[in-house]
Design a protein around this nucleic acid. Structure first.
Lengths: 215, 215
DNA sequence: CCACAACCTGACCATACGGTCAACGAAAAT
DNA sequence: ATTTTCGTTGACCGTATGGTCAGGTTGTGG
């Protein structure tokens, strides 16, 4: 039973601040609830309780449950895309892919809920973000495939199918968020420490970079 | 709107056959619906329609939605464990891990729904199969870690943390089921062909086996 | 000080869903 | 032939949930 969070609203007053602050409160709560219960299992009441606001207030900012969910998914997608930049300004696979793995592992640690919502959305056939997959994601992927292919042509790594390499990067890094509960259970029921995360990141980097012949 | 499937019940008569056949019908439908809609989004009515049976009949065989869901998850877990045997009777990582990757990729292709249900269950904190994680899965994992460590000690592969290698194997292979929709979208919206699956499996095997220094 | 807009919320509603049940049919068992 | 067990099903019920709304309060611009 979640208790009324309602942290000190401080003395802000400014209309825009109120809006932004409450939207933030709601989005954070929604991300967590959607991640833990799925879209169908999540209830507006639960999100409201977790945000410390009356349910009717949620509908003031987000007309429908779908609207709220859509915003949560979009947020995640943006975070996810930001990590992409680490890929580009790199001379070769060791720096580029290495930095990308580090960035994505970091996101898995800092935004596990978002990663889960994204995973669930895709698993359900991407009803909400299908257009993103077909436009933004496809373009990004094509660009990265071209880049990797260039590295291969320049002899900086072995001739691996770039597409499957990308899938492997996504799968491996996001696994630490999406299957975090399983990993935690296998870690004596305890969350991964800083050292654990460093080990994980290093292991992934080593196996993949060596696996593509970049080391 | 699903139409009444009700394939020819043939002339069986035998009480046990009816039970088994209907349970099969229901479990298959349930696996698909749970995978596509999640536990909360799935409705008994939808599962009933997809199985070609009246809703009340589902409750005759499976008292509650939870019971039905539990059975679906258990089924998957068993399939998943069966693939484990490929690991054991192998002389070294090339055969053992290679066979394991092939087995798991095959499962991803043949049981994508099951894989998704499993993923969603874990992502939601494993409310139903937590005990399996703590017993069967943990034991299996410990055994495999010991085996990999032995291979390392025998100089058959590089000194990689076996735990993270296992996570990588799970993540990569299951990704092709769980994120199948995304992969399909990036494949011009078309399902992966036989050749694609062979390529995928080979890419994964190559990167990982080379990555652990076994090639 | 007033008027207007933005924000807030308890009470309410329609619907959809999981689950029940009583009545029935068919096949075994006796 | 009769009883008993198993399978079948339409109709029904209580509840939970997404969403609405009318009447408020608060802050802001004129």
């Amino acid at each position: 039973m979640p208790e009324p969070a309602r942290i000190s609203r401080i003395r802000s007053g400014r209309r825009t601040d109120i809006r932004r602050e409450n939207e933030r409160l709601i989005l954070d709560a929604a991300e967590k609830v959607f991640a833990e219960a799925g879209f169908g299992g999540a209830t507006m009441q639960l999100i409201a309780d977790m945000a410390g606001l009356p349910k009717a207030n949620l509908h003031y900012y987000f007309p429908t449950k779908e609207d709220l969910y859509r915003r949560v998914v979009q947020n995640i997608f943006e975070i996810w895309l930001d990590a992409a930049s680490s890929f580009d300004d790199a001379a070769g696979p060791i720096e580029g892919i290495g930095a990308y793995i580090e960035a994505k592992m970091d996101i898995s640690r800092r935004h596990p809920h978002g990663s889960k919502v994204w995973a669930a959305e895709v698993m359900h056939g991407a009803p909400v973000i299908q257009d993103y997959l077909e436009t933004t994601l496809r373009d990004w992927t094509d660009g990265r495939i071209a880049l990797i292919q260039r590295w291969i042509d320049e002899g900086k790594m072995a001739p691996i199918d770039p597409r499957h390499l990308l899938y492997m990067l996504w799968a491996t890094t996001q696994h630490y968020a999406d299957f975090g509960h399983q990993i935690e259970t296998l870690n004596a029921g305890r969350p991964l420490s800083d050292a654990h995360w460093r080990e994980a990141t290093e292991s992934v980097k080593q196996i993949i970079l060596r696996g593509i012949g970049a080391l």
